[in-house]
Amino acid sequence: MKITAFEVREDERPFFEKLARDQHLDLVLCPDPLNMKNLRMLTDSAGISVLGRSRLDAGILDCLKERGVRYISTRTIGYNHIDVEYARSIGLKVSNADYAPNGVADYAVMLMLMSLRNYKQALYRGNVNDYSLPGLEGREMRNLTVGIVGVGKIGRTVIENLRGFGCRILAFNRHPVPDLEHQVTFVPLDTLYRDSDIISLHVPLHAQTYHMIDRSAMSQMKDGVILINTARGELIDMEALLDGIETKKIGALGLDVIENEEGIYHKDRRTDIISNREMAYLRQFPNVTMTQHMAFYTIEAVESMVSCGVRNLLEFEKCGSCRLEL
């Protein structure tokens, strides 16, 4: 079976090459996202694998179909960069990746602690030999209420991590999670907004969750609330976010993702003009910690993402089915 993988980073390459040897694959690796210009690489490829910068809309999907591609895998858990319904309608099979939730869950808790302890300002001061304390007084997790929005694999692992801190944990989920009811208190979303000192988002991006944190949602939250987002940037309305920081409604932000990050994160843009004013403005606040969509980025997760990306395509070819976690 011939497979073409796009957006292949150097850290992924050894895992791809090992799978190619072990599975006797004809594997083509491309560092660029899939687009109309590099579709010509797909001669005789039955399957392709991509990451999140490849935008697989109807036009791209039609071209894939015309070139004989039958299977698509994304090496990400999220799949909002693929028009899955259209792919299905033209007979293309699509799968997403699965990897252990621990890396992202650990990262979310790290951002909570960094926000609570004013780590960004402490680090900055230390770099300029300012070792003063005023303005750096923090808070202890054990005295706070943490709200977890979305109790999938990552959300429930965050809950497990937080239990050792002794904090009160609230959770909202679209479906009941009976086995966690003795560990957390499940509440409606508006109650979670109202009662939480820290709110951490762990839901996928789709039409119902797009801009779920907007001005109306923020108005229900405590003054000084801490927001953590390691899921998808579009869950939070950027304009509402800026208003929340400026008015001090939001006490601190820990963001691994932001709205309109495409074309910026996962690239070296040191000498470029970056046309994202909101991003530049947001990151300068002393109580905003922003990282470059890297919560997932562990050795274990990278290996698992590559393995899922290839093995799902092989499973499609072998038996015509594959678990698609939508």
Results as ranks from 00 to 15, higher is better:
Met110Tyr: 12
Val94Tyr: 09
Tyr99Ile: 08
Gly103Cys: 09
Tyr99Gly: 02
Asp98Val: 12
Tyr119Phe: 15
Ser115Gln: 06
Met112Ala: 10
Leu116Glu: 03
Val104Tyr: 01
Ala97Asp: 02
Asn118Thr: 09
Asp98Leu: 12
Asp98Glu: 08
Asp98His: 11
Ala97Pro: 00
Met112Gln: 13
Lys120Asn: 01
Leu113Val: 14
Tyr107Val: 01
Gly103Arg: 04
Tyr99Cys: 05
Gly103Leu: 00
Asn118Leu: 08
Asn118Cys: 09
Leu116Val: 02
Asn118Ala: 14
Lys120Ala: 01
Met114Trp: 13
Gln121Ser: 15
Gly103Ala: 15
Ala122Glu: 08
Val104Arg: 06
Ala108Lys: 09
Asn96Pro: 07
Tyr99Val: 10
Tyr107Ile: 05
Leu113Ala: 13
Asp106Leu: 10
Gln121Pro: 02
Asn96Ala: 02
Ala108Phe: 07
Ala122Thr: 14
Tyr99Pro: 06
Asn102Leu: 04
Ala108Leu: 08
Lys120Arg: 04
Asn102Glu: 04
Tyr107Asp: 04
Leu111Pro: 11
Gly103Phe: 05
Tyr124Ala: 13
Leu116Arg: 13
Ala105His: 01
Ala97Phe: 04
Arg117Thr: 06
Met114Pro: 09
Ala97Tyr: 07
Asp106Cys: 08
Ala97Gly: 04
Asn118Arg: 15
Leu111Tyr: 06
Gly103Ser: 12
